[in-house]
Simulated assay, not measured.
Amino acid sequence: MTQSDLFLPMIALKAHAELGEGPRWHAREKRLYWVDIAANALHRFDPESGVDEIRTFDAPVGCFAFRKSGGLLLAMKQGFATLEGWDARPLPFGEQLFTASPDIRFNDGRTDPAGRFWAGSVNLKKSAHDAALYRLDRDGVITKIEGGMLTCNGAAFSADGRRFYHADTPSHALRGYECDPATGTLSGRRILHQFPFGKGRPDGGSVDQEGCYWTALFDGGRVARLSPEGEILMEIALPVTRPTMIVFGGEDRRTAYVTTARTGLSDVQLAEQPLAGSIFTFRVEVPGLPEWDFGL
Rank of each mutant, 00 (worst) to 15 (best):
L270C: 06
S206F: 05
S158L: 13
R222N: 04
N153R: 05
M245D: 00
K77R: 14
F66I: 14
V141C: 14
V240R: 01
A271S: 11
G154M: 03
L97P: 08
I54F: 01
Q269P: 01
E285M: 05
E231K: 15
F117A: 04
R67P: 07
A216D: 07
Q194M: 11
D130M: 08
F218E: 00
S4P: 02
R31M: 14
G176T: 14
S127T: 09
D267W: 08
T111M: 06
P228V: 11
A27T: 10
W86I: 11
P287I: 11
D87L: 13
H43W: 09
F197N: 10
V207I: 15
E229I: 02
E95N: 10
P202M: 04
S121T: 15
T260S: 15
V61F: 06
A216W: 00
V207M: 12
G62E: 08
G50N: 07
T111E: 04
P290Q: 03
D103R: 08
S101F: 05
S69G: 03
E48S: 05
R44N: 13
C152K: 00
I236V: 12
A155H: 02
L289W: 09
E231W: 09
E48N: 04
L42T: 08
E18G: 03
D103L: 03
L74E: 02
M245Y: 02
G79M: 13
F7I: 03
G161T: 02
P181R: 11
L32Y: 09
A224R: 06
Q273H: 08
Q194D: 14
Y165E: 12
I236W: 02
T143E: 15
V286D: 04
S127W: 05
R135G: 04
